[in-house]
Amino acid sequence: MFGPGIWRMKRFADSVPEIMDLQREINRLFSNVGQATALDYPAINVWEKNDSLVVTMELPGMEPEDINISVTGAALTISGVTKADPLKDGETYLRQERALGNFQRNFQLPFQVDSKKVEAKYEKGVLNITLPRLEEDLPKKIKINS
């Protein structure tokens, strides 16, 4: 309903994060109606500076090689699989709340990304992807000939 329109949020770039929190709460309130919210897992945060974006995602307990990140033009895809502990016979889960299994998320970015300069970092269970804008895609100043 109120999808992740990253480029539309840019006009609020200077606002405090509290506004973001409020917006998310309101979105959640309205988007619950008949919506498969499992598609929005795992959650992301997007940060911006001049001509690059940083996407962060909480992905606890993964191996870096199990996370797949791909960038094509202005599309970003993050996918992976999380595994449970192997249990022996006679051992049972008393409680199982962690989200395990496959996940995939696709995002439309507001600009073309220089895929060669994309950097990804995975620390303390938080994935951090830096996406610089493609130089050819930067706005050019047009000289006016008098």
Binding site: D14, D40, A43, N45, V46, E48
Partner: peptide, 8 residues
């Protein structure tokens, strides 16, 4: 960086 979109 400034936060432009937030889900968590």
């Amino acid at each position: 960086y400034s936060l432009v979109f937030s889900e968590y």
